[in-house]
Amino acid sequence: MKYFVNVTSLEELRKQYRRLAKINHPDMGGSAEEMKIINIEYEIQFKSLENSDTVANGIKYNKEQDAAIRGVINIIIHLNVEIEVCGSWVWVTGNTYACKDELKKNGFRWASKKKAWYWHDPKEATRSHGKTTMADIRMKYGSDVIKEANTVYCVTA
């Protein structure tokens, strides 16, 4: 184990995995072999922590939901958009017009008030119906930025 050495909870494991995916995913300039090693270590560490304290912020850790979030992120990580995870929701912002069809195809929906695409587990019930701001969501559930969009600057002479 070299990637998840000091991880003591499932929440820490998930955050560490997201941080490592930003750096080592093949679509982000990393190697496929290194990402495979990270995934194997993640599964090993997950199994060892699974029976320990699985409640964070009053919410029971959900293995299937975590796998679904990782799967969705791996599908869209190659897009030039910003990807953020807040709780169990994946939010996509930036210049998304060019990739809106791919986002729709992968189960994302458009939140017009937030000017962002979102994905969440269809089994999960929603309560606010779009009334909550992104700042409130980030405050309540925390926020992990998985990927920032590549910024292209235009220099004029």
Rank of each mutant, 00 (worst) to 15 (best):
M1D: 11
K2T: 14
F4E: 04
F4L: 07
F4V: 03
V7Y: 04
E12T: 03
R14S: 06
R18C: 07
K22L: 06
N24L: 00
H25E: 05
A32Y: 12
A32P: 02
E34T: 13
I38Q: 00
I38G: 00
I38N: 01
N39K: 15
I40W: 15
E41M: 03
Y42H: 12
E43K: 14
Q45E: 05
N51F: 01
T54H: 02
A56E: 04
G58I: 00
I59M: 03
N62V: 01
K63I: 02
E64Q: 10
Q65P: 03
D66C: 07
D66A: 08
A68M: 11
I69S: 06
G71T: 14
V72P: 05
I73M: 04
I73A: 02
I73D: 01
H78A: 05
H78I: 01
H78N: 11
N80H: 12
V81S: 05
I83M: 05
I83P: 05
W89A: 07
V90E: 08
V90A: 09
W91K: 10
V92E: 05
T93V: 08
N95G: 08
T96W: 10
A98Y: 11
L103I: 08
K104W: 07
G107N: 09
W110I: 01
K115V: 05
K115R: 10
K115I: 04
Y118P: 03
Y118W: 09
Y118A: 03
Y118E: 05
K123N: 07
R127N: 13
S128C: 11
G130W: 06
G130S: 14
K131H: 10
K131M: 12
M134Q: 11
M134K: 14
A135M: 12
R138I: 04
M139N: 15
M139G: 10
K140H: 12
K140F: 07
Y141Q: 10
D144A: 13
C154P: 08
V155C: 10
T156G: 09
T156W: 14
T156Q: 11
A157C: 11
